[in-house]
């Protein structure tokens, strides 16, 4: 247990982000309740499609309220910092990946995504980034298309 990496954790989140989380839970529960009622709540002898989601929705609302009451206890929550922008960039690259894969195959998006992550998110050298991303595409092609014959859209 001694070798656990020492993280430079950002400061703990304030009550605000806990309140937002609690609000999201309450809203989710409320949406579930609304959706369930639209589906038909049913009864114990004739449970309808909405019965079970209705129960869960109610439980979520209660739990969300409890979280709100205890918003001061930040627990392990962390504050969002500037480095969160890196995460946003990473997510954007993946969304671009999934948006084009069906039309142009997986090879080019894979190459670009790997390169962006290596060079710009990971600050690897140009050399390493290029070699590694090309290597990933070759290996993926050999593995998924060649060996496993998976039907993923591919260009070549």
């Amino acid at each position: 247990m001694s070798t656990e990496p020492v993280d430079e954790r950002p400061p703990s989140a304030g009550p605000l982000s806990n309140l937002i989380a609690a609000a999201v839970v309450v809203i989710l529960g409320g949406a579930a309740i609304a959706g369930s009622l639209a589906l038909g709540a049913g009864s114990p002898s004739e449970p309808g499609p909405g019965t079970w989601p209705l129960i869960i929705g109610a439980v979520l609302v209660v739990l969300g309220l409890a979280l709100a009451v205890r918003a001061r206890d930040t627990g392990e929550a962390e504050r969002f910092t500037r480095s969160g922008l890196l995460v946003a960039a990473a997510v954007a690259s993946m969304i671009a990946f999934v948006a084009v894969i069906a039309t142009i195959g997986f090879e080019i998006p894979t190459l670009l995504l790997a390169f962006v992550w290596l060079r710009f998110l990971g600050h690897e050298s140009w050399r390493t980034s290029i070699i590694t991303s090309v290597g990933i595409v070759v290996v993926f092609y050999a593995l998924f298309v060649g060996a496993l014959d998976v039907t993923i859209p591919h260009l070549f």
């Binding site: 593995l143 060649g146 260009l155 070549f156």
Partner: peptide, 19 residues
Amino acid sequence: LPALGLATVLALAGCGGNL
């Protein structure tokens, strides 16, 4: 991945794109 050697060999069968 130890699979790679095997995979590369098998991949030599090669195939065109499926788009």
